[in-house]
Design a binder for these strands. Structure first.
Lengths: 338, 338
DNA sequence: ATGAAAGCGCTAACAT
DNA sequence: ATGTTAGCGCTTTCAT
């Protein structure tokens, strides 16, 4: 019973009537205060508060063709992407936009869903965080809504992209190890379908070649960015002869898995085998010993993406892509080979 | 230049004109296909696809007073809350709803923002995940929109709440330790402002009393749910005389911090000092040795919350609160006292 | 500074 | 099975 004590929605006209003014006056007082007299402004504000008036945003959005809210779609809830979201949120708030997060599971269908949300005016724009080469999205549509790619390139789909220098990061890891005296360095990569994984593998390969290392001693294997894959692949690598003295992992998850495999074999981390991760997430810092890894400013990446998106929304021409630098964080899993 | 090659929005009337039918026919074909002839249906679908028509959801939402999308607001991006979100997402999808995630940072202002989103018709309902006692929200508003509380009680604000049995979980941890022979068990809690922390502390205290342990030997200290606080507080606990032989932590973060402090002191985990966590997150499983902890079905909690929300939306009366059970996951950080 | 009127793009009676 | 009409709650000209 009492099903009718649902919250009765109070509309602008209710506020207007209660005040004996027109709807336009209320509307103006609420969104363009400088257009009404001080007295009216005050009365409207007071009454709106008293009546607990909430504007119907569907109506406003329809009329203004804008929502002042943005979407950030992440592939998964990895801390990496969450950090990016955090930056996005900051930047959006600074510009008076709200942000909501959605996750795609790297599923193309789901990515299209969120693109459509923008096309359908549920949000003004989209930051698509992806590591899967967004060019494939073009197979199914020609025009893209207001959007920005983060973490990946946007080859050929004509939207701004904010990335990091994956190849340079991997190369820096190799250089560090070579400097320590390593000559047999392996790479445990991510799935080659992911452009992110390919770029990191490329950086590794190029650096190995540049250092003049024997390719046969620098094997490259591909995992799936999971800890389990890092562990399994490392275990296999350890049976090779000659055994690699160091490993560059394509992310921190893989690196920690590798570390566990090394420990399990009774080898000493940083002496028998050195490991470098990628992404600089907490999981590596928590490990004992803490992981040497390739870091970068994830929050800044999110900020940049939103900045570019909003600039685009404001018609300030096509924004330049950005490639953020990486920085090697040398901790305790790397050392001179025994 | 070419600023005008912005995506020209195609509206329903454009599709209707192209086909020589009325807008209503297009509308019906798209959302109530059984109301139009097969032939019309097919023509409309084809044309809509060809013209890349996307319905303007602001208009639809305005007209139908519904969005078919739900909001889940989490306090932080802790894996605990992300698991809950995952469950929410599943359940929502099963009912044809979309879900977006927002985060509140346990900030009351931000919580109100998302409540307002619902009142403003941006979403049909809200799952508010909180550990801060939602009753305080009532200070600032009388009526709540369609919402459900997750992880906390909803004392006195008249909305359904889906929680877990925090006190029982903590008590089970104590019982496990008592069974192992421990008589001096400490508790490192969370901030007492959080009802979640208070409940867990209460369960601890009651179980300690029920077991007839000497209260002076079972100190309770309060951290802030962070690893660092667990480490610092554990270090202090270890200087006490007589030293506690076991600790029940209010969450896994604290527990892992405690573990680090114990290790640093050169004590043996599970023999000199046993530790039980709470939440059963990956951080505990990753630890060496893996953490004994109080677990519960986080995904199910999210599912239940969405189920209750949607049931409420459909007018199926007030939904009963749920209290999910916890289950002790005995791993390797607990053992008989030395 | 304020009011009247039009209209955003859609859905849902109500006709036919 | 389809078309006509009204209207969701706002914002924004255009008058005054």
């Amino acid at each position: 019973m009492a099903d009718d004590d649902r919250i009765a929605m109070v509309r602008m006209r209710d506020v207007a009537r209660a005040l004996g003014v027109s709807v336009s006056t209320v509307s103006r007082a609420l969104s363009q205060p400088h257009l009404v007299s001080d007295e009216t402004l005050e009365r409207v504000n007071a009454m709106a508060a008293r009546m607990r008036f909430r504007p119907n945003l569907a109506a406003r959005d329809l009329r203004t063709r804008t929502t002042r809210s943005l979407l950030v779609a992440v592939p998964s809830f990895s801390p990496l992407f969450l950090e990016i979201f955090r930056g996005a949120e900051q930047a959006a708030a600074a510009h008076g936009y709200g942000v909501l997060m959605a996750h795609t599971g790297s599923d193309a269908d789901r990515e299209h869903i969120f693109l459509d949300q923008v096309l359908s005016q549920r949000a003004d724009g989209l930051v698509l965080v992806t590591t899967m080469d967004p060019a494939r999205l073009a197979e199914r549509r020609r025009n893209f809504p207001a959007m920005v790619i983060a973490m990946d390139n946007a080859a050929g789909i004509g939207v701004p992209a904010m990335q990091i220098d994956n190849a340079a990061g991997a190369a820096a890891a190799v250089a560090h190890l070579v400097g320590l005296g390593h000559r047999r360095i392996a790479h445990i990569g991510g799935p080659p379908e992911q452009s992110l994984a390919r770029e990191r593998a490329r950086g590794f390969a190029e650096a190995v070649a540049a250092a003049g290392l024997e390719p046969a001693h620098c094997p490259r294997v591909a995992g799936d960015f999971s800890l389990a894959s890092g562990e399994a692949l490392m275990a296999r690598l350890l049976t090779r002869y000659p055994r690699p003295t160091a490993v560059v992992a394509a992310n921190d998850e893989i690196a920690v898995g590798a570390l566990q495999a090394i420990k399990r074999d009774g080898l000493v981390i940083g002496r028998d085998v050195s490991v470098v991760g990628f992404d600089d997430l907490r999981i590596g810092l928590l490990h004992d010993p803490p992981l040497t890894t390739v870091g970068f400013d994830k929050v800044e990446l999110g900020r940049l993406a939103i900045g570019a998106l909003i600039a685009g929304l404001n018609g300030r021409g096509p924004v330049a892509d950005a490639i953020l630098p990486t920085a090697l964080e040398i901790r305790a899993t790397t050392g001179a080979p025994a």
